[in-house]
């Protein structure tokens, strides 16, 4: 289940200060352990250790991105001047189900703008997501969407999360990632973004698979594949449980 990739990046190392460019091979690796997280009956989130190597002096930012989906949300607004109610819908196209950044210490003090310059963070995400709603509040609505996602733990920026260790000429990095139980089964892209002097040198990618197994997989396949049968079975089991409990109580506590 160990996923690994050793990619020799033929990225151009931009010597920004000199304004010159030079092709420098960039040896780097990215591993996920495990690469597959299984959701079983007692699942309460999964831990994944991300490790890899990068050239010395290069910072590594880890970015976890869920599959893109369309999300329809209710918008709250004032009605009759005093009552807060659902007043319409907001649709977000191409918003990832999860978005998490894991920053090294060197980049943890930076601002949202600094992350944006690296094409990461919520401002960068805003450019990718299309917000469809009446009115001109799309930026505000995206901001509220991010707050909603943050509250459910699916969007988060973790400072001081990536740690380095010297390993000969290269440096190795490591970071523990926790996949909360709300991260549904699916494929999640884990990128290691290599940064030096505020410039992205290259990106390594791996796929983290989250899959239901055993009882949860059985329930899901029944619920989505045979909805009516599932509903009838669920009702019958509930009925039987009610009858059973009624019988148990009759035997156990008759007098009153």
């Amino acid at each position: 289940m160990k996923a690994s990739a050793t990619i020799l990046l033929a990225a151009l190392l931009v010597l920004a200060a000199a304004g010159a460019t030079a092709a420098v091979p960039l040896p780097a690796t990215l591993n996920l352990e495990p690469g597959l997280v299984e959701i079983k009956a007692t699942y309460n989130g999964g831990r994944v250790l991300v490790t890899g190597t990068a050239p010395a002096g290069v910072d590594v930012v880890l970015r976890l991105t869920g599959e893109s989906e369309d999300t329809v949300l209710s918008k709250k607004g004032r009605v009759a001047g005093v009552l807060w109610m659902n007043t319409g819908t907001v649709t977000l196209h191409n918003a990832p189900t999860a978005y998490m950044l894991y920053l090294p210490k060197a980049l943890s003090q930076g601002t949202e703008e600094a992350l944006d310059a690296l094409d990461m963070g919520y401002s960068a995400l805003r450019r990718q997501v299309e917000v469809v709603s009446p009115g001109n509040d799309q930026d505000f609505e995206f901001h509220e969407f991010v707050r909603l996602k943050k509250r459910s733990g699916l969007y988060k920026i973790h400072p001081n999360a990536v740690e380095y260790a010297n390993n000969g000429g290269a440096q190795s990095f490591s970071c523990g990632i926790f996949a909360p139980p709300r991260m549904h089964q699916g494929d999640y892209k884990v990128d290691a973004v290599l940064v030096r002097n505020g410039v992205v040198l290259g990106v390594l990618s791996q796929t983290l698979k989250i899959r239901e197994k055993g009882f949860p997989a059985l329930i899901s396949s029944l619920a989505f594949g045979h909805g009516t049968l599932y509903g009838i079975l669920a009702s019958l089991i509930a009925l039987a449980a009610g009858l059973f409990m009624g019988t148990v109580f009759k035997g156990g506590k008759g007098a009153h």
């Binding site: 009882f215 329930i219 619920a223 009516t228 599932y230 509903g231 009838i232 669920a234 089991i237």
Partner: peptide, 18 residues
Amino acid sequence: VTIMQASTNHTVDFVLAV
């Protein structure tokens, strides 16, 4: 309601219900 919801919206979580 349970049968209708299960067949049309797939929103009945049996584990939770149990």
